[in-house]
Amino acid sequence: MSLGRSISKYAAITRINLQNNLAYVGELAYRSIFMVVILYVFVQLWRTTFGVVGSDRIAGLSLSDTIWYLVMTETVMLSKIRFAGKIAEEVRDGSLAYTVGRPYSYLLYHFFYGIGDTLLRLAINFMAGSILVTLLVGPMPATNLPALLVVVMLAIILDFCINGLIGLLAFFTEDVESFVLIYNKALFILGGMMIPLDFFPTWLRDLSLALPFNLAIYAPARLFVQFNGSRWANVVALQMIWIVVFMLLLGLMFRWGMRRVSINGG
């Protein structure tokens, strides 16, 4: 199998799902409304917090930094690939019989299936959030956008791998909703989605930084508000290491799962 054919295979998957999702034009608007509402609430919340603390900066972050940080965490959170739910759905309705039986890698298929939609969401959510936050607290922090995009993409891939590990549990248990919920809560707190890890007590911050969740949410958002070359290199290296680890696990779990799965229907 040549590389060119391989690429055009997976590119075609991205393209068709993007086309399919464009059928829901209304949902695109709805998505950005959600983003705007959430950010509006956060702005009020943090404005009050900074007022009560009575200082311009908390742990090195200004109000504007904090809000822009949240623009990025929300953007990633609301745009990432919903892989786990998709696997569970395929196991439940039996469409796994089709998706697993084609000449491609099942895991890559889903990555490229989701990535088109994710890029679209990233752009829409980021723009919607940026417009609102620019109006409410001021302009975007100057930052190195291309370098940041690398970190965001790696964050999406890392999350995809973790999501996949959770999703493959559906091969054994059928329902993974509760595991997804736990994972998302981990991202809320340990990933730094709700509050920048910098604001945490030392022990919790150290714990969060040692776990991979921060690399999916906190790391890109923190670099977004205060870019720093060596910090960037460090984040990228860590992201890549975790991605390799999770990919290996994912491959093993998929093979093991295929031996165990029973496909519903008929």
Partner: peptide, 18 residues
């Protein structure tokens, strides 16, 4: 997979909106 084809009557494989 390159050499066999399968149709599952109860499951759709065509993209629904396209």
């Amino acid at each position: 997979a390159y050499r066999i084809g399968s149709v599952f009557g109860q499951k759709p494989q065509l993209w629904y909106h396209l």
